[in-house]
Design a protein around this nucleic acid. Sequence first.
DNA 1: CCGGACACTGAAAGCGTTTTAACTTCCCCT
DNA 2: AGGGGAAGTTAAAACGCTTTCAGTGTCCGG
Lengths: 358, 358
Amino acid sequence: MRGMGNDMVSKGRVTIREVAERAGVSTATASRALSGNHPVPAATRARVLRAARDLDYVANAHARALVGGGRKMAAVVVRQVTSPFYAQVAEGVEAEAADRGWLCVVGATGGDAQREMEFVQLMREEGARLVILVGGVVEDDAYRERVAHYAHALDSSGARLVLCGRPAPDPDIPALVVEFDNEAGARAVTGHLLSAGHRRIVFLGGLPGNTALDARVAGYRAALAEHGLPPEAAHVVDCGLGRAAGHRAMTELLKRTREFTAVFAGDDMVAAGALRAIADAGLSVPGDISVVGYNDIPLAEDFNPPLTTVRTPAEELGRAAVRIALRDPEHAAGAHHLLGTHIVVRDSVGAPPPGRAL
Amino acid sequence: MRGMGNDMVSKGRVTIREVAERAGVSTATASRALSGNHPVPAATRARVLRAARDLDYVANAHARALVGGGRKMAAVVVRQVTSPFYAQVAEGVEAEAADRGWLCVVGATGGDAQREMEFVQLMREEGARLVILVGGVVEDDAYRERVAHYAHALDSSGARLVLCGRPAPDPDIPALVVEFDNEAGARAVTGHLLSAGHRRIVFLGGLPGNTALDARVAGYRAALAEHGLPPEAAHVVDCGLGRAAGHRAMTELLKRTREFTAVFAGDDMVAAGALRAIADAGLSVPGDISVVGYNDIPLAEDFNPPLTTVRTPAEELGRAAVRIALRDPEHAAGAHHLLGTHIVVRDSVGAPPPGRAL
DNA sequence: CCGGACACTGAAAGCGTTTTAACTTCCCCT
DNA sequence: AGGGGAAGTTAAAACGCTTTCAGTGTCCGG
């Protein structure tokens, strides 16, 4: 860093021409010496590098991308960056991209399909070679058409589309899917509650049409069925996600009935809201009600009590998305990858209260 | 969206040439019609737009930036995206950038100066017009030299550098600073504890050399002084930030002494760790010890008990950084903007226990 | 009826880089 | 001595777009 800038020309970027001139070579040679794309004798190379350093030369990425046809850039699109889960996925993408010298841009849509489309369009203009759409959505016709459009549009310019935790499109659409095995995770954590003796378990946070949540509900139901519990025992509250929703739904539920002994929250934020509502109602966890969450956000172990939940390695999801997309150039289209999860046992699950066990 | 792609050529991007050809005009006219940079008769314009739509034309941002000299792109650099505070700042930058049609890229450094330099260099190559460095660091010579380098390098290519919550460099360096008034916030929240009757207040989470924390410590000391409390009452534990650090430091502190009645945590994550440690020790908040945090992260109200803290509107910080940088083109260099904060009172502060009040 | 102002359009000159194809040398082999 | 590389180098052609400059007509006032 020392000694930089002594020769800096006042304004305007230094071009490779000036570097070449100073080094006494042509731009072709300068380019090769700088990019290392073609062998150049050590002496010449040194002269060029020296000149570049003296002039504080910075390559113009646009010119480079223009001639090189595309550039090393990945885009990750989430609903909002501040959601811990999305943030982790984005961090994973960023890290894996950075590891290979790729640039990573993030876009936040706020859940607005319009903004999503605009952003994908922008990424097309920018020449992103990889677009990663993260986060569950309701799967309707508009969604399917949108994704089909993205996929073909990106594919036609040689870019890849990855869907993380989203409904998979028709298998002949050139996109690949990477997500967690939600059903298995939900089955496991429900089984954990069942093993503790619970029989009346509420699922809080369904969102019909959202494939991620639907899969969790399916896993939850499967676990109950495995224990020979009738489907009507499956108490699914479709309150959607988020802390506020969890708090509201739990408060109402407690007002209506207390015949359940455990709550399976659709995600940790819902669990946070539910815990608060339970505390507000003067009940204790896990003394009166056991609670489990989903996702294991960083603060889950600081909940009161520390939350038993399912760890979904979100950062790994982001990394996997990049890795897989860049690995299987051909076999990619239509591939569907499932990532494993595992339970994290903390203190929010206990035996059901004696009087209320079935 | 319907009807797109019928005419799409198999591979290779559609260029403006083909659009022009199809519309029966020259590339010059096509460019003008598409960019709206120069008036074009309505009929011609319509033909061009029609052709572009039919062919699913996507402009090449690189070519555009190459000739146009630069592009609308902002970069925000944080330690890690998963930290709630940084995430909010990044979201603010993203939102404000998106509002003006700018692209926003984020870089995570993991606190590594090397990666920070690489990223800034990359942004220089990419032609970013605005680089926002977020987050406190230790201010040493290496830091100062680094920032001076960034500032001059970016300035020489017409880009702006903004420091958010970072030590301000020499005033003649072409960078501007936007940050919260940490001292005022800390003074206020300390005052809140003092008003509740506390006299022995520990500051947990100092990090000497980190200007943000140092300012909070200064505010804390100032508040004590205003109440006529001697400096030796100022008990500052330099454990740094993060949940783990807070937990460890609090555990150790409780082992050593219990003569304090309140804790001022350097940020909410430290507070989270501290709360856990206090609970582990069998003490209650605020019954035995009162706790306040800093930053008001989204989950702070779900802590046990809900945390009284200082709200630092992080998203607004991000937005302000962009706004200010883009507003004051000239007056910018060396400007120092302070953003206000305010206390959020929740349940983690009470009167000191009768026996232990000074 | 002419000169000029005006509206529209197109050919061509870049923007900064990489890469291809050609051109020197220089050396080794027959 | 002459031919065939290999090694090193360069001039010039892209890459896709915007913009300048000049060239059409067209319309108006004189």
